[in-house]
Amino acid sequence: MSGHSTIERRPSPPPAKTPAPEPTRVPAPRRRRTGRLTGLLGNGAVQAILIVVALVWITPLAGLFLSSMRSDGDNAAKGWWTALTDPGQLSLDNYTALFADSGITQAFWNTVLISVPTTVLVVVIAALAGYAFAWLEFPGRNAIFLVVVGLLVVPVQIGLLPVAKLFGTIGLFGTIPGVILFHVAYGLPFAIFLLRNYFAEIPREMLEAARMDGGSEWRIFTRLILPLGRPALASLAIFQFLWVWNDMLVALLFADSESQPLTVALQSEMRQFSSNIGVLAPGAFLSLVVPLVVFFAFQRHFVQGVMAGSVK
């Protein structure tokens, strides 16, 4: 045996692993009541409700359309819904008689001659003024814009008699240009307010880059502002067209028998022949279907304009 003792080295135990911390659980946000209600009802129930609402909205239109294609005797004897089971009641005789009436056809074209120029003038002037108030610097800009906003609260009834006297003095009373001018004057405050706020949301960097590239204000307005503002312009055009097309108060005062629109002509027919459904029903449906066609034709732009003001 050797005098030196051998020391046996044992391997040290591996260090204990520290348990990994448990992930912190973030409480799930509470669902809103509307989301909870939608989840309870389900997509099928929501679609059923929307279908019911659509039917309630379409039913008067369908009743007016079917009544306009039935004779006075059928309208007086039975309800319009009987035409669904008896299509033999329907004919185009009422529309033939309506378009043969020179007074109604003239009133229809008067409505077109009033509504279209008014809409175009309001949109063009408001677009120019909205761009000026939003991005151009000139003396009194804020004060003038406050005056424009203040005109929004002026009721149209206040200006009827004074403007009628003014138009009578300058020879515009009882004419189509007089009706157009009145609608343009009272449609501009809201139109300028709407487009100015929309144009002001356009990033300033885009306009500065266009100016640095040598673009004039007119070129910036036509090539940049108008394309970007197309949803707002389309929404304004739809609203203005509907307001003017369905107006009767202004036309009743400012238009004479030669320049009266369709709404005044139908009101005159109702006053003279209150039971003549064969004339009133097709005339009312004709007055209703044109705004519907315009709305559905520009529906995509209208929805974009509404959503642009609510979604950033």
Rank of each mutant, 00 (worst) to 15 (best):
A97M: 03
T111V: 15
L90W: 06
D93G: 04
F99R: 01
T118L: 13
D86T: 06
Q89W: 01
T119Y: 04
D86M: 07
Y95N: 02
D101P: 02
D101E: 10
Y95T: 01
W80N: 02
T82Q: 06
T85C: 11
D72A: 05
F99A: 02
N94D: 00
V112Y: 13
P87R: 04
A97N: 11
Q89H: 12
L90E: 01
I114D: 10
T85Y: 08
G103V: 07
K78D: 09
A107V: 05
T82I: 08
D72F: 01
I114E: 15
V112K: 14
T119K: 09
D72Q: 14
Q106P: 12
S115L: 13
I104C: 12
V116R: 11
S115N: 14
G88C: 06
D93T: 00
D72Y: 00
P117F: 15
A100T: 12
W81M: 10
I104Y: 04
T118A: 08
S91A: 01
A83G: 02
V116I: 08
L90R: 00
T105K: 08
S115E: 14
D72C: 08
T119S: 11
S102E: 10
A107D: 07
D74F: 03
L92E: 00
S91D: 01
T85W: 11
D72G: 04
A100N: 08
V116A: 15
D72V: 05
L113W: 11
T111C: 09
T105W: 05
G73E: 13
W80D: 03
F108V: 07
L113G: 09
W81G: 14
Q106F: 15
W80G: 02
N75H: 09
D86G: 08
K78P: 08
L113N: 14
W109N: 08
T96W: 05
P87I: 04
N94M: 00
T82H: 09
P117H: 15
Q89A: 07
A77W: 09
L92V: 01
A77L: 13
G79R: 13
L84M: 14
S71L: 10
T118Q: 07
G88T: 06
L98M: 02
L90G: 03
G88Q: 04
L98A: 04
W80M: 01
D72N: 06
P117I: 12
S115F: 09
Q89S: 14
Q106I: 14
F99D: 00
T119A: 11
F108R: 05
W81N: 14
S102A: 13
L92D: 00
V112E: 15
L113P: 12
S71H: 03
L98Y: 00
T85H: 13
L84E: 05
F99M: 04
Q106A: 13
D72K: 01
A77C: 09
A76W: 06
W81L: 07
A107L: 15
T82C: 05
D72M: 05
T119V: 07
T105Y: 12
K78F: 10
T119Q: 09
D93K: 03
K78E: 13
Q89E: 03
A83M: 01
F108Q: 14
Y95S: 02
G73N: 13
T119I: 12
G103F: 05
T105R: 06
L90Q: 02
A83Y: 00
S102R: 11
N94H: 02
